[in-house]
Amino acid sequence: MRGARALAWREIVRFLRQPSRIVGAFAPPLLAWLLLGVGFGSSFRVPGAGGTSYLTWFFPGTVVLVVLFAAIFSTISVIEDRREGFLQAVVVSPVSPFAVAAGKILGGTLLALAQGGALLLLAPLLGYAPSVAALAPALLVLAFVALALTGLGLTIAWMLESTQGFHAIINLFLIPMWFLSGSFFPAEGAPGWLRAAMAVNPLTYGVAALRRALDPTAAGLPSSALSVAVTFAFAAGAALAATAVITRYPAGPDRATRGSRRKKP
């Protein structure tokens, strides 16, 4: 597991040495939170949220958005690694593809969790949790959300040749998934088809679990047990899918590579 640990460590060091990535991960979600939160705050009341302001209500969804952005950035690094050539040396080394998968998943998840967790520290200021220690359950939920989104990103990115392709997937799939997760508007009061889409979206349950961890009195959400169970299953499924695709195609889109499951030419 030395290889996996080193690859995960590399992800984190690379992140810390690229300040633009830190800004890129925090700035857009925070900007969205402040502008949308303050802008909508005067006009909208969230049904079932009592007297909570929109800015406060929107906060857990923003934390999830930071995690999503972090996961996207770290999975884009797979495509860069391949283009810059780092992965080619890994592919012909005696390392097991499982260690590569574990390293990538672990590194990406830790980075996403650290970024989401850093934002979560603001929660007590917004009246969410009485103390930083009370944030522990929320952090645990966030860890599974980070694992789920990193695994999902890796599963998609591993077989892509270019970042352009990934941008299309981000805009058409990952961002809509966040929009329909109960982060931005609650399911309550939405039209039936939208509610149905939100109900089948596994991220909905991650956001719900996070809301419940931060505010046990939150209403209009799936039950705690269901939210935690789906989030756990989402994380496990995404991690397994990423591991499967990486071990099956160690060299990614170049399926002619030795060790990929493909017939001899």
Partner: peptide, 8 residues
């Protein structure tokens, strides 16, 4: 060091 770790 990273490559060495990959080699075990």
């Amino acid at each position: 060091l990273v490559h060495g770790a990959i080699l075990g």
